[in-house]
């Protein structure tokens, strides 16, 4: 016990000051536990994707076999392509809708503006399960059955559902970006002869740009790994990547599932990191 304490708090160090929280034992332990609970399952999942064992309970050796297997699984690849297609289309639509929504809410005054703004943000807080069920019922009742259509139109219902829940995120990010706009810039452009549209194109869109990119990355990751809403709105034969993994897990958790999940994690992490970096650069520009 005493060795452990000595290890964590070396004796010859100066006294811990009142604000030196990072040097307190209890805080270090809390941080360590938090990180372990957050990341150990994910790291384990990733490590076991290289496990040379079919049942995947005990480590039996390193292999790329299951990555190969996953690549040769045509259903899995089809689901992956479906997911990418949906994510791509819904991202573009979400950013355009989000930017226009944000611009209207920022630029104009009209009755019930605050109500519109709240209504727009609602999908962010509504439980996904409720939205999933609501959209499913909606598509059933309206007879919007896209399951039998030719690819990629058989993905229409899912894509519409994805746009519905991800464009508010884009709108919120872009709306926040517009708050920092100096209206003298648009007045100045107008003073120099620019029309309303030229002001939008030449001055406001360039200012929005970091928000547009951040919103796009957000919408892309949200769409790519969505399970709940997709599960309710996908018809037979329109599998997406997360839904396919779920159906694979129902049989058995093979390293193939781990391999596919690892790929999804890596893609999501890369895109999120990019989004965060853009957001940071954005903040730095504002501060400087």
């Amino acid at each position: 016990m005493s060795t452990l304490t000595n290890l964590l708090r070396r004796k010859n160090r100066p006294e811990i000051g009142p604000l030196d929280y990072h040097r307190r034992l209890w805080l270090r332990v809390t941080v360590a536990l938090t990180l372990i609970f957050l990341y150990m399952p994910i790291l384990t999942l990733m490590a076991f994707s290289f496990n040379d064992s079919k049942r995947n309970i005990v480590w039996r050796g390193f292999t790329f076999k299951y990555y190969e297997k996953a690549i040769n699984n045509s259903e899995l690849i089809e689901a992956f392509l479906n997911s990418l297609t949906i994510a791509f289309v819904s991202t573009i639509a979400s950013v355009i809708l989000g930017a226009l929504t944000a611009y209207v809410l920022w630029r104009f005054r009209f009755p019930f503006r605050a109500v519109y703004e709240g209504a727009m943000a609602l999908p962010v807080v509504i439980p996904e399960i409720c939205m999933g069920v609501a959209l499913m019922v909606f598509f059933l009742r309206t007879g919007f059955n896209t399951g039998g259509w030719v690819w990629p139109f058989n993905l229409s219902a899912i894509t519409i559902a994805h746009i519905a829940f991800s464009f508010p995120f884009a709108a919120i990010v872009i709306r926040a970006r517009l708050e920092s706009f100096n209206t003298e810039l648009s007045e100045s452009a107008k003073d120099l002869g620019a029309s309303e549209f030229q002001v939008f194109k030449d001055i406001i869109v360039p200012h929005m740009k970091p928000g547009l990119i951040a919103g796009a990355l957000l919408a892309f990751t949200l769409s790519l790994d969505d399970f709940v809403i997709t599960f309710f709105t996908s018809g037979p034969g329109t599998l997406t990547f997360p839904v396919k993994i779920y159906s694979m897990v129902r049989f058995s958790v093979t390293p193939e599932v781990n391999a596919a999940s690892t790929v999804l994690i890596v893609i999501t992490v890369i895109i999120t990191a990019l989004a965060l970096r853009l957001q940071n650069r954005n903040n730095m520009l504002q501060a400087g």
């Binding site: 100096n182 003298e184 810039l185 007045e187 107008k190 003073d191 120099l192 620019a194 030449d202 200012h207």
Partner: peptide, 20 residues
């Protein structure tokens, strides 16, 4: 006559130089 059609130009308090 709208602002963009007037024979006047303005120097703003914040200078409003387009940052991009």
């Amino acid at each position: 006559v709208q602002a963009n059609k007037r024979p006047v130009n303005m120097v703003f308090q914040s200078y409003a130089v387009f940052p991009h």
